[in-house]
Computed example of a mutant assay.
Amino acid sequence: MASLTPRRRRATDWTNALFVLPYLIVFVAMIVVPLAWGMWLSTTKSDLFGTEGFVGLTNFVRLFGDPIFLQTVWNTFYFVLLTVPLLAVLGLALALVLNRQARWAAVLRTIFFASTVLSVTVVTLVWRLVFLPDSGLLSVVTRALGGTPIAFLNDETLAMPAIAITTIWWCIGLPMVLFLAALQQVPRALYEAAALDNASRWRTLTRITLPAIRRTFALVIIIEVILQFQLFGQPQLMTLGGPNNATRPIVLFIYETGWRQWELGYASAAAQVLFAMILIAAMVQYWLSSRREAR
């Protein structure tokens, strides 16, 4: 077949570009422009009525001297450490158990994934009823066992773990489904060979299953890190950031600063810090997983 002439090749390239154009327009309008606008706002003194002037890095200097903001940074990291490892490990465990061609496995997969489609309002309402100190499910069970009910959401030490439990119950469906998809791509011949060699379940898991799904494991970690750094609805609806700022994450700080105190420049600076944290965390995880694969 004769090669295309330069004019036809250029026409083909422009035709291909037209297929990409709608995505590029949406990407620029929804991602690039708001990101650039937020970076510019973070260097200004702005409110809901307009911009007063350029202030440079003043908002960032103020942020890192603000004890409330520093507390929200710690709260966010603490929440990510509580949730991401458990979401990955429990999601993998559920996928291993439910990776069967059986009706009961299909029913359980549906049940575990069903919580993912619920709104944050419904999830937090259900779990507030669980954690109520007087008439909640946990208090009823504790009294039945002869113990003293604990006010989880009113305790500075226990409030964030309570929100983490709520989030894990809500979000466990996504990692489970991703791991299930990965497990179903592992060749069955490998498991048959391991069975012929009388390999134990632990050896099969560590030598066949985990190496085969390591990329999916890294993907789940990166996705969950990005999602959990954006914690907002659960503390907003369950604790309002309390008690004593113990559950106030960065996104809630941004919301309150920007839309309640009307300091858009200051809130935009906090948003840029959050963006940098998510980017660094995701890149570090990607780098670590790439190094493991290169070995």
Rank of each mutant, 00 (worst) to 15 (best):
A2K: 15
L4G: 14
L4F: 13
P6H: 08
R7Q: 05
R9Q: 00
A11N: 08
D13R: 09
L18F: 10
V20Q: 03
L21T: 14
P22M: 00
Y23A: 15
Y23C: 12
M30D: 08
L35W: 12
W37M: 12
M39Q: 13
M39L: 15
M39S: 09
L41Y: 01
S42T: 05
K45E: 08
F49P: 10
G50V: 13
E52H: 10
T58F: 08
N59I: 05
F60M: 03
L63Y: 02
G65F: 02
G65H: 05
P67H: 04
I68W: 03
F69Q: 05
L70Q: 11
Q71M: 10
T72W: 00
T76F: 00
Y78H: 13
Y78R: 14
Y78S: 12
F79M: 04
L82V: 00
V84A: 02
V84R: 01
L86M: 14
L87T: 05
V89T: 10
L90C: 09
L94E: 05
A95D: 04
N99I: 07
R103E: 13
R103P: 01
A105E: 02
A105N: 04
V107Y: 14
V107G: 13
L108R: 01
L108Q: 06
T110P: 10
F112Q: 04
F112C: 09
T116S: 13
V117G: 00
L118H: 02
V122E: 02
W127L: 04
L132S: 14
V141D: 11
R143N: 09
L145K: 07
N154R: 07
D155I: 12
L158R: 10
L158K: 05
M160Y: 02
P161W: 00
A162P: 10
I165K: 08
I165P: 10
W169E: 08
I172L: 15
I172F: 13
G173I: 09
L174Q: 06
L178D: 04
L180V: 08
R188Y: 12
A193S: 15
A193R: 09
A199D: 10
S200K: 05
R203G: 02
T206R: 04
T206E: 02
R207M: 13
T209G: 11
T209R: 04
L210P: 14
A212N: 07
I223S: 10
I223R: 08
L231S: 01
M238Q: 02
T239F: 02
G241E: 06
P243C: 06
N245V: 11
T247Y: 00
I250W: 03
V251E: 01
I254P: 00
E256Q: 15
G258Q: 14
Q261M: 14
A269D: 03
A269V: 01
A269H: 02
A271C: 08
V273E: 04
V273N: 01
L274T: 00
M277A: 07
I278N: 07
L279A: 12
L279W: 07
A281G: 04
A282F: 04
V284K: 08
V284R: 08
V284L: 15
Q285L: 15
Y286M: 15
W287H: 11
W287Q: 11
S290C: 11
S290Q: 15
R291E: 08
R292K: 09
A294Y: 03
